[in-house]
């Protein structure tokens, strides 16, 4: 039981990193960013490209590359459709995600590649009778630091406050002098940084890379947002942990015959939650509702 909780905490931290990246953009510009998965995928491949360098340098470069991609996405695609309907934004991000996938397919091929980034982090240590991977420690610790950092950034810095204002009411915020381009671009930057770090942890725990690897994480991000409430950052992080707990528990306790259908149950659960709470468990009705 305790072992499962540790696993859930580690998985939940990874999910929270992904979910926050998606939720940040959603709360500011109403964008459900399908291409977030591709940012993670790019991060994975960047890890491969720079793997000959010392790990710390690699990590910084990976995050920088992903942030760069995020900013480029904003400038080249999303800026033109800003303010369009949610469906248009969603389809734009869909197209972008396919485009990036196609590009990686062209240059890297469809075959899975494997990499062993974190070598000795694969080992595990005994803590109070539980075996906890060093990687789990790293994920949980780094995520905690990042969450605290994001909270500080959003509350204590001018840019953070502007971002929160934009998330509250974009038009009003602009009227009061918030510069839209700056706020949206920095949201993409932060989102990219989270994606880059998530990519490092994801690849470290799975060890393999494919051009289509972004799909699963981004779906996890969506689900976490829906669970937590569309448009609220902390609820999204909470949703990520709940989803991880649900996943780990289902994996551990589902009877053998039903086990293969675990994902079906999770996603069906999402639909049912949406049916009763169209804006998520902690969502605010009225924001998008007609």
């Amino acid at each position: 039981m305790a072992q499962n909780l540790v696993n859930a905490l580690s998985l939940g931290s990874l999910y929270a990193l992904i979910a926050l990246g998606v939720a940040l953009l959603f709360s500011i510009m109403g964008l459900i960013n399908f291409a977030h998965g591709e940012l993670i995928m790019i991060g994975g491949y960047a890890l491969l490209w720079f793997s000959s360098l010392p790990f710390a340098v690699t990590a910084v470069l990976v995050v920088a590359v992903v942030i760069g991609f995020g900013l480029a996405m904003e400038r080249l695609a999303f800026r033109s459709v800003r303010g369009a309907s949610g469906e248009t934004l969603l389809m734009t991000s869909f197209a972008l995600s396919l485009f990036i996938q196609g590009g990686v397919l062209l240059f890297e091929g469809a075959d899975p590649k494997s990499t062993d980034v974190l070598g000795n982090l694969g080992a595990s240590v005994k803590v109070a009778g539980l075996s906890v991977g060093k990687l789990d420690f790293a994920i949980i610790g780094v995520t905690a630091v990042l969450l605290a950092g994001l909270a500080w950034f959003l509350r204590a810095t001018s840019l953070g406050v502007q971002m929160r204002a934009a998330a509250e009411d974009f038009t009003m915020a602009r009227a009061l002098g918030v510069r839209a381009n700056l706020v949206v671009a920095s949201a993409f930057g932060v989102s990219g940084a989270f994606a880059g770090i998530a990519a490092i942890f994801l690849v470290a725990s799975t060890g393999s890379l494919t051009p289509s690897m972004g799909l699963r994480p981004v779906l996890v991000g969506f689900v976490a947002i829906v669970l937590g409430g569309l448009g609220r950052l902390w609820a999204a992080a909470l949703g990520a942990y709940v989803l991880a707990l649900l996943t780990v528990m289902l994996q551990a306790y589902l009877p053998g015959g039903v086990a293969p259908y675990q994902d079906a149950l999770v996603y069906l659960g999402i639909v049912v939650i949406l049916m009763f709470r169209p804006h998520g468990i902690a969502g605010r009705p009225g924001a998008v509702r007609v």
Partner: peptide
């Protein structure tokens, strides 16, 4: 299951159903 929803919630719900059905088929 989905007709109460519009916009993005409808998109996500229909995607979730697609995934569920695919898991069952698989």
């Amino acid at each position: 299951l989905t007709l109460r929803l519009d916009g993005m919630a409808a998109g996500i719900a229909s995607l979730a159903l697609l995934i569920s059905v695919n898991v069952v088929i698989s």
